[in-house]
């Protein structure tokens, strides 16, 4: 073999990797936040009274769950300017990831909504809350609590998907890794360290979420 491991180069650029990691977390967080807003709206629409909005929500989920993220990213970043919609790299990536996440979260919230007991909704109506108030003060909090674990899993998976931002040259972890790889040719070292950074971040987030879940009262 004759390959001796040299982690020195990788450690020398470790701060770049860390800032890439932070950027990836930021991209994932932004996407899950916007995606949750989309998912809430589409989730309520998907169980709502209007057949038009139910269909629309269903179509949205079907389309964006079944498209590869990379295709969405390329369409938004390279394709949309053709229609005069110009976003910078980060904006277009967050937008892509958010509509993708929104489709998954719609399903998550929909399931959470259907799991809210009918009697509890009636109790809200019985004390005189309007339909909108019942949704806001009774249904939504219960649903969000139901959806919390799935929301966390989605965030982890979006953080991993943030690696795709490397394709449009956003300097997140994978992008930095490729650069170091090319500069140093410490191939094994680079990818091992990067992979371990991703894995340990994912495991930490998962542990954090479990702790968070325990803090919130279970129903």
């Amino acid at each position: 073999m004759g390959y001796t491991l040299h982690f020195g180069v990788v450690w020398a650029s470790f701060d770049r990797l860390l800032s890439g990691l932070a950027l990836g977390l930021g991209l994932g967080l932004a996407a899950v936040a916007i995606g949750a807003v989309i998912g809430l709206a589409a989730g309520f629409a998907s169980v709502g009274p209007s057949p038009f909005w139910r269909r629309a929500a269903g179509l949205y989920v079907t389309v964006f769950r079944n498209l590869p993220i990379l295709v969405i990213v390329l369409v938004v970043y390279f394709g949309l300017p053709q229609w005069g919609i110009r976003l910078d790299k980060v904006e277009s990536f967050v937008a892509s990831l958010a509509v993708y996440a929104g489709a998954y979260l719609t399903e998550v919230f929909r399931a959470g909504l259907l799991a809210v007991p009918k009697g509890v909704i009636e109790a809200g109506r019985a004390i005189g809350l309007t339909r909108l108030q019942t949704n806001a003060y009774v249904v939504a909090p219960i649903m969000v609590r139901n959806a919390l674990p799935a929301l966390g899993t989605t965030f982890i998976s979006l953080f991993k998907d943030s690696s795709i931002a490397a394709v449009i040259a956003i300097p997140e972890l994978t992008f930095e890794a490729r650069k170091i790889n090319v500069e140093s040719f410490r191939v094994i070292e680079t990818w091992t360290v990067v992979s371990l950074l991703y894995v340990s971040t994912c495991l930490s987030i998962a542990a954090l979420l479990r702790a968070l879940e325990r803090r919130f009262p279970k129903f």
């Binding site: 009697g119 509890v120 004390i127």
Partner: peptide
């Protein structure tokens, strides 16, 4: 709101 209702299955708001 003019009437109050108490249900068989309590239906308290769990959150």
């Amino acid at each position: 709101a003019m009437t109050g209702m108490v249900f068989q299955s309590f239906n308290l708001f769990p959150h």
